[in-house]
Amino acid sequence: MSLLSFLIGEKKKTASVAKERLQIILAHERSGKSAHQPDYLPDLQRDLIAVLSKYVNINPGDIKVNLERQDNLEVLEVKIELPDAR
């Protein structure tokens, strides 16, 4: 086989390259989809900051609002970092 393939001129194994390329493209596209956020998220974030700052001294950058899709489930993630208690 090796001699034969040498004579014919063996072609490069490109299938694994194709799979790798696909995985990169799709990882990029799929993450791009979840980055498509509904319009109300910035408003929600602003309101949350307004409410919280009534009670806690909080930095606007410390609140992160994120919507994630997992199969048929949408998860609204609100992450609030409280300032160090001194």
Binding site: K11, K12, K13, A15, S16, A18, K19, L22, L26
Partner: peptide
């Protein structure tokens, strides 16, 4: 061609 590594296998495609 799949056996020779020149084409995505059906397992590859299903995997993706």
């Amino acid at each position: 061609r799949v056996q020779e590594g020149q084409m995505l296998s059906l397992e590859d495609i299903q995997d993706i």
